[in-house]
Amino acid sequence: MREKSGNRVSFRTTALLLCALLGVSPAIAQEMTTSLVDIHQGSPLSDRARGLGDGGYELQNGNRLSFNQWYRASWVDMHVDLLTQITEDTGILWGFGTGEEGEKYRIEPSLKFGFLTQMHPSANSTLSLSLTTTIGGNLTEKSCQADYGDLGTYSVNCRLAAGEMAPEETLKYLVNAKPERQHLWLNYRVTF
């Protein structure tokens, strides 16, 4: 099985539940091990949120306002991927993301589930297939309250508040993005 880290973590209870779902006998489950496959910070949505912080505009008094202050987070979304081996050639992939939050956006926490299986077409080759699904992890941009003086206060897209667009129109351009929901991975490896 693919294993990026030698750290082993026992998640016996979780494994037992997964075994029950997959119809694997508890006896096998007792021997299951869970391995840390990957741990990293950041994601395409984190990068996109950071990109929203590029630019700025001048307020009425001429003070420069930078978007950066709104689209930075003290903690960057961390993803932990784990693999619980069920049989010699089958495992459950699962994991989670912590999410992150800035003043004007939020990436919600996420959970990942899936499986990994492999077969050996020949003695020196391996064909692997994995499919994972992610729940949660949406990026949501928050609106701002903009005071236009005599023209009133509006709920606006923070980034578009100084443009030509009508304040209420700017809300249509708030970013609402989903992470990659399903990921299919196919790998064929030949050793020689």
């Binding site: 505009y57 001048e58 307020l59 009425q60 008094n61 001429g62 306002l65 701002c144 309250q145 903009a146 005071d147 236009y148 003086g149 606006v156 923070c158 508040a161 100084a162 443009g163 030509e164």
Partner: peptide
């Protein structure tokens, strides 16, 4: 704007030079 004018004085320039970009910008935003 008054900072784009030579020797700004209300008796000459009134409120100052019209600024479209500032007229479209908020006073404050949060």
């Amino acid at each position: 704007r008054t900072d784009t004018l030579i020797g700004y004085s209300p008796s000459v320039y009134g409120k100052g030079e019209a600024s479209l970009s500032r007229a479209l910008a908020p006073v404050s935003i949060k």
